[in-house]
């Protein structure tokens, strides 16, 4: 799946890790403050998309692999997260 001849570039992975930590702390803050409502839900879903996409691209190393594998993951994340958004919208 990965280009094994190349050395793994660590910097994007380290940045990814820092972003993940930051976003998780933000989610925790939202949770502890008990925030809710449309804006917050949208924010949480967007941050979840960013986090999972970063994991797929940088940790799993999909950015080095064929386009169709990256598309599958992207479509998966979009379907699941927009499905969740839809369910929240249905709930009103």
């Amino acid at each position: 799946m990965n280009d094994k001849s190349a050395m793994l570039n660590l910097r994007p992975c380290t940045i990814t890790w820092l972003v993940l930590v930051g976003l998780t702390l933000a989610v925790l803050a939202i949770g502890r403050l008990g925030l809710g409502g449309w804006g917050i839900v949208a924010l949480l879903l967007a941050s979840t998309f960013v986090k999972t996409w970063l994991v797929a691209e940088n940790f799993m190393g999909l950015r080095y692999s064929a386009l169709r594998w990256r598309i599958i993951i992207a479509v998966y994340l979009l379907v699941v997260l927009s499905g969740i958004a839809l369910a929240w919208w249905v709930a009103g």
Binding site: G31, S47, T48, V55
Partner: peptide, 15 residues
């Protein structure tokens, strides 16, 4: 890891 990243906000935080 990825699954938990979705699970945490969904089940613990979002309302």
């Amino acid at each position: 890891d990825m699954v938990w990243i979705i699970l945490f906000p969904l089940v613990y935080v979002m309302h």
